[in-house]
Amino acid sequence: MRRILAILLENEPGSLSRIVGLFSQRAFNIESLTVAPTEDESLSRITIATKGDDKVLEQIVKQVNKLIDVIKITDLTERSHVERELLLIKVLAMNDKSRTEVKRITDIFRGSIIDIGKQVYTIQLTGDADKLNAFLKTLAHETEIIESVRSGCVGIARGEKALRV
């Protein structure tokens, strides 16, 4: 089962490598990982999308928690939460027909075209992984995808529940 883990940890050299090292050392799966400092610069927040059964997930949570510089870890998928990912994609837009079609699809998905080249459009889209996949699939029918990059997901709990020190 796919899980999204949110981790709050000390923003110190080596913190990220300990997390990544742990996942490979113990043969845990990483689907995506994003990291950045929080509004309090002494802290970093990591979001990891992973897969595993309950037993594996229990070990992942415990092992991450055991790292000295980890302050908190929570499994966002346990409760109601919001999940977002950013996609930047460059597609071929050679003629009027394909330009119109790409623009139409982008609008339907509530994306935006953020750059235009002689023969290409660059599009930005946010959403959950499922929406991004659907967009990619639809675009691929219409035109040629030249390049794409995804941020990996970030997530936050709905309502009052918060991950903080």
């Binding site: 050299p13 080596g14 490598s17 300990r18 090292g21 050392q25 000295i68 510089d69």
Partner: peptide, 9 residues
């Protein structure tokens, strides 16, 4: 890294 409780630079 995989064989310490923690480390410091």
């Amino acid at each position: 890294r995989p064989i310490v409780k923690h480390s410091f630079n």
